[in-house]
């Protein structure tokens, strides 16, 4: 009778109530959450951008602060989505038993994973929007083409949310997340053109950096915010979407095993 489960996640609109549950909770904690979206990245942008900008002057024929703003927008989406799919999701899975309880309703593991990753994407996009707003007010954004950053933030957030969900799926405790930060997120932050152009790195390292999703996110977002020309648009979107899709499949399969064996 044991039926082989389908390989791919079962995509159904049942993920929406899972997403909406998290939205309801978020609305209760609106103020600290929004402050978190603006706070740290804005400090980075202005203090780092100002101090360092005076030192380096122009980067890629633009003021350093303009260059940095798009990088900070991407890294902020990455960290916000990752935090949500790591710490907050783990709390719901492990501490509060929210997920195991949801499985008593007509929801299955696939709905929960998709709902959680979609929520991480939403929070990522909110933080991307916050940076975009601040950058626009500060005159660091070239034109309305930058509005494309909003849907892109959703995609980038989905990608990092899905990858983080894999980590959550195999994590025995909160401490485990530190490996992911130290071995994956921090190196990616430093190697993806957020703070300086990738061209400054040795070719071999730059090539490795382009195997990771954040470099593609920055390559997409920077031209939109600074009004320069995008190169390799399709490739960047395909890489990010590919990471997102594969990570969603892997996370779903791991969590099926963890929650419903």
């Amino acid at each position: 009778m044991a039926r082989p489960q389908r390989f791919l996640p079962e995509i159904s609109l049942r993920f929406v109530p899972v997403w909406r549950r998290n939205l309801r909770v978020w609305r209760k904690l609106l103020l600290p959450s929004i402050l978190g979206n603006f706070g740290e990245p804005v400090l980075y942008l202005f203090i780092f951008g100002y101090g360092f900008g005076r030192l380096v002057g122009q980067v890629e024929r633009m003021p350093y602060m303009d260059f940095l703003a798009s990088g900070i927008a991407c890294s902020s989406v990455m960290f916000t989505a990752s935090f949500e799919a790591l710490y907050s999701a783990f709390t719901r899975m492990h501490e509060q038993q929210t997920w195991t309880t949801m499985l008593n309703a007509p929801l299955n593991v696939d709905d929960i994973v998709l709902g959680e990753v979609a929520w991480a994407a939403t929070k990522g996009a909110l933080s991307g929007a916050a940076i975009l707003l601040v950058a626009a007010v500060a005159g660091l954004v070239a034109g309305p083409a930058a509005l494309w950053v909003l849907p892109l933030s959703l995609l980038i957030g989905f990608c990092f949310g899905a990858i983080a969900m894999i980590v959550t799926a195999v994590s025995p405790s909160y401490d485990f997340f530190l490996y992911y930060f130290t071995l994956a997120l921090t190196p990616m932050l430093l190697l993806s053109g957020v703070f300086f152009p990738l061209r400054e790195l040795p070719d071999a390292i730059a090539t490795v950096a382009f195997l990771l999703p954040l470099a593609h996110a920055v390559a997409l977002v920077r031209p939109l915010m600074t009004g320069t020309v995008t190169h390799g648009l399709v490739l960047h979107v395909v890489v990010i979407t590919g990471y997102a899709a594969v990570a969603l499949v892997v996370a779903t399969r791991l969590l099926r095993r963890r929650l419903a064996s």
Partner: peptide
């Protein structure tokens, strides 16, 4: 995080 009523409403949304 939810009140008694919100718990019931959220649960209803899963159905």
């Amino acid at each position: 995080e939810f009140s008694v009523r919100e718990n019931l409403e959220t649960w209803a949304s899963y159905f």
